[in-house]
C-alpha cells in the first residue's frame, strides 16, 4: 500500500467544506465559532459578508427575513438573523456518518 504514497502530493489537498456554526455581529465580526480552525478565515469571512448582505438587501426589498437557507449541491448554509448580526449553520452534505473536526 505504501507504493501509492509515492503518487500522493501533500501540497494539493482538497479543501474541506466547512462544518459547524458561527455567530457574527452586525459588522461581520465573528463572536463565536465551532468551525474547524484550519478552515481559511478568508472564506469564512466571505460566507459571513454574503449572508449579512443578503439579509440587508432583503430588508430594502421589503423582505425582512428572520431566516435564510441556501442549499448548494454539497453544502447547506442556514442563517438566522440576530439583531443585525446572525447565527450561521454550515452543514456539508456528506454521506459519511461523522465529519472530522480539528
Amino acid at each position: 500500500m505504501g507504493l501509492l504514497n509515492l503518487f500522493y502530493s501533500a501540497g494539493s489537498k482538497v479543501q474541506r467544506l466547512p462544518s459547524g456554526s458561527l455567530t457574527v455581529d452586525r459588522e461581520g465580526g465573528i463572536v463565536s465559532s465551532t468551525i474547524a480552525s484550519d478552515y481559511p478565515p478568508v472564506l469564512l469571512q466571505k460566507i459571513v459578508q454574503d449572508v449579512l448582505r443578503l439579509f440587508r438587501e432583503a430588508r430594502l426589498a421589503q423582505l425582512p427575513f428572520s431566516e435564510i437557507s441556501l442549499t448548494f449541491a454539497s453544502l447547506q448554509i442556514t442563517a438566522r438573523e440576530l439583531r443585525g448580526g446572525a447565527i450561521i449553520f454550515l452543514s456539508p452534505k456528506i454521506q459519511t456518518s461523522s465529519t472530522p473536526t480539528n
Binding site: 467544506l17 466547512p18 454574503d50 427575513f65 435564510i68 441556501l70 448548494f72 453544502l75 448554509i77
Partner: peptide, 24 residues
C-alpha cells in the same frame, strides 16, 4: 452572492434559496 459562494467554496450549484419572515 450564491454564484461567488459556489465558486469559492466549491459547494456546487445552488439548488434553492429559502427566506422566511413573519408574513411570508
Amino acid at each position: 452572492a450564491c454564484r461567488s459562494l459556489s465558486e469559492q467554496l466549491n459547494a456546487g450549484p445552488l439548488g434553492q434559496l429559502r427566506g422566511v419572515h413573519a408574513e411570508r
